[in-house]
Design a protein around this nucleic acid. Structure first.
Lengths: 115, 115
DNA sequence: ATTACTGGTTACTTATTGGTTACCACTTTA
DNA sequence: TAAAGTGGTAACCAATAAGTAACCAGTAAT
C-alpha cells in the first residue's frame, strides 16, 4: 500500500491495512497457506494476476516479514516462497475470512457450510 | 472493489476481497464495532477520509449488506449507520486483525499486548 | 541455430481510487 | 439578514494500483 500513510498510524486497523490492505496480498497469503510455492506456481494458482504485480506484491510481503524468499542458484532459476512465522500468525485470520465468505456470500448453497 | 471481477470467483478469498478488500472498508467496520454512528461521527473518527470516499464506501458496504443505514426525517438531517447481522459476523475477524497488528507491528512495545 | 525454461524487469498505458472545492436543502439561532 | 448545522452531491483533478507486451540471462534440449 502506497507510501506508508497508514504504517505509523495509531489505529491498529490502519496499520493492518498498511501490511495486507491490497487487492492481492490476502490472496497470495491464502495460496501459501499450506505449502511453499515457486513464483510460477503462485502465478498459476492466481491466474488473473500479472507477473509484474505478483512481483511487487511478493516484494512488499517479504519486506514486511510476512513471507520468505529463498533463491536456489540453479539454471533455470528456482525461487521458493513461504510464509514466515509472522505470516503464519496471520493465517487463522485469512482462513476465517475465507470461511466467513463461504457462509455468507454463497446464496445458492446456504446450508452447505462444510465445503 | 471495482466492477466485480472478484465477486463471482470460485475462490473464497477473491470473493471476500470483493466485499471488504479496499483501503477503507475494514476501518469503517472497525469504527462501527460497538456503536451506531452518524455520518459526521464516522468522518470524525477517520479523519483522513474525504466525505466523497466515505459516502461511496458506506454505500458499497450497505449494498453488500454489511451495514444498515437509517435516515431520520429531521432537520438538520440525521443518518445513522450500524453493522447488520452479516456485518457483525465479520467483526471477530476484523478485531482479530487489529489484535494481530498490536502483537506484530509495534516494535516499540513488544511485550505489551494487552492494550 | 532455435526454442524452451524460470523468474523476473522495463517501459508504457489504463483503470481505479482518492482528494478538493464549491454547493444544495431546510430550519433554527444569533 | 446571515450564519450554522447535517449529510450529502457534482465537477474536476491527482495519485496510485494494476495491466500489457516485449525482453533478458544462461543453460539444455531439439
Amino acid at each position: 500500500m502506497k507510501k506508508d500513510v497508514f504504517r505509523y498510524s495509531d489505529c491498529p486497523m490502519h496499520r493492518s491495512m498498511a501490511v495486507i490492505g491490497t487487492k492481492w496480498k490476502p490472496i497470495v497469503i491464502y495460496v501459501l497457506r499450506e505449502r511453499t510455492a515457486r513464483f510460477g506456481q503462485i502465478h498459476a494458482a492466481i491466474d488473473s494476476i500479472s507477473k509484474k504485480v505478483l512481483t511487487s506484491t511478493l516484494k512488499e510481503l517479504e519486506s514486511d516479514g510476512i513471507i520468505e524468499r529463498k533463491e536456489y542458484k540453479e539454471l533455470p532459476p528456482r525461487v521458493e516462497y513461504k510464509l514466515s512465522e509472522k505470516g503464519k500468525s496471520l493465517l487463522p485470520i485469512i482462513i476465517q475470512l475465507a470461511k466467513w465468505d463461504k457462509e455468507h456470500n454463497c446464496p445458492e448453497k446456504e446450508s452447505l457450510q462444510n465445503a
